[in-house]
Design a protein around this nucleic acid. Structure first.
Lengths: 231, 231
DNA sequence: CGCACTCTTGAAGGTGCTCAAGGGTTGTGG
DNA sequence: CCACAACCCTTGAGCACCTTCAAGAGTGCG
């Protein structure tokens, strides 16, 4: 079930203005402008799509964050990926009838969505579009490789440190931590308690600081060491 | 460093005959025939490519198995994916200069490789080729999602059971187990001892049988239960 | 036959999980 | 404005799962 919950009428979305599609060049801009796409606003309570439902749209995240996750038969959630502004998600429709995972906004999300058949039609006329999606997809695959390495071959501290280094691009700067402890745990394949304990320890050690939903890495060098000299 | 170790001269490779490219249709067959591609044979001792080296080729596996893996700074290997005959691997060259992971044959592998610039050139004239790679890539991504769920949210027994169910498509049939215990461990994010103990237990329970590099699931139903009612 | 390699099995230990309780924060309604 | 509930986070204690370390058995190969 999709529950758009848009703020009033759907607004049209200027796809061609986004960095993801910026490389497509002059000639294509007009074609992109002609593509029918809607802007939809989601709050934390809304569902973007659920695993197993018909995959009708491809999404471009304009603003906010989206979590993609799968659930085990036992009911345990694993977050596959945190989508950031400017990134594409929900390609499943180009291949399968149904979505392979679920998508929820973290706090708030503003997305631009295009119907799969519209995109497929555009792809027929403009092969550059599919090339672009191919490229994005390969990059996602590389990202997934890295995450498999983390989950399969690293300890809890290394995983959390790697995540923080990737999340806080700059050290010594306050960065909003949009994820709850539970969500971090579900992303890293740990429990909420383990994540909490690591944070507590690192705060005592002066490695990180935290204040109401924002975080700061104090000692990037040491954090890199904890992560296992990576990133 | 790539070390082809081909058996004598490179043989040309009939790409268009492979299932991966079968859907491309009549018109394209001639174009595919014209693409310069080599067949290369690898033994267990050879390297196909290593993470970090220049990504010069895209590969199609004709025969055998290939493991794609990454290594942590600590020197621990994580197998990302086991490539089976008919599948494509090594797309990194279409996006990056270098390979993102390493590729080794399991026992033996016969691959067909195409230089990235050749494929890119073909892609310019024949957009179907890039669409095909896009589709394959999305499927890989879905596969990666599933593996992230396994590594992040499942216990050792569930992981091994899922793997065996996927590996032995048919129960009650002997299937060659090309992977060593160590490789299974590296694939599932476990230790060799844990894998060995699970096998020993399941053999005692009559769940599986094993004889010189071949394995058979005796009770598929129960194996599905162990896997956590999935697959 | 002996060497190398893989696999098995045991015992001990640690990492991370489970269970449980308490504290802090936010939002809501009286 | 305060009381209270709901929610998230923290912290502790005990334990289970899996790893680590170690030794031995099985297998293949020169």
């Amino acid at each position: 079930m999709e529950s758009p919950h848009s703020n009033g009428a759907l607004k049209s979305c200027p796809i061609h203005e986004f960095p993801a599609f910026a490389a497509l060049g002059e000639k294509l801009t007009s074609a992109l402008k002609a593509v029918e796409s809607d802007t939809v606003e989601y709050t934390a309570a809304d569902t973007i799509y659920t695993a197993g439902v018909n995959a009708q749209h491809i999404y471009l995240l304009r603003e906010g964050h989206v979590k993609l996750f799968k659930t085990t038969p036992a009911g345990k959630d694993q977050i596959i990926r945190i989508v950031k502004a400017g990134e594409i998600f929900g390609f499943d429709g180009l291949v399968d009838i149904r979505y392979n995972h679920s998508a929820l906004p973290l706090k708030q999300a503003s997305v631009c969505r295009i119907a799969v058949e519209k995109l497929a039609a555009l792809g027929e006329r403009r092969p550059e579009v599919e090339r672009l999606i191919m490229v994005r997809c390969i990059k996602e695959l590389q990202h997934a490789d890295e995450r498999l390495l983390e989950l399969g071959a690293k300890r809890s501290g290394e995983r959390l440190a790697s995540f923080l280094l990737a999340w806080c691009c700059d050290a010594q700067t306050w960065t909003p931590l949009v994820l709850s402890r539970l969500e971090i745990a579900q992303l890293l394949g740990l429990t909420i308690e383990t994540v909490s304990r690591l944070f507590a320890q690192w705060k005592r050690d002066g490695l990180v600081q935290e204040k109401r939903q924002a975080i700061q890495i104090m000692d990037r060098k040491q954090m890199v060491t904890v992560a296992g000299s990576h990133c």
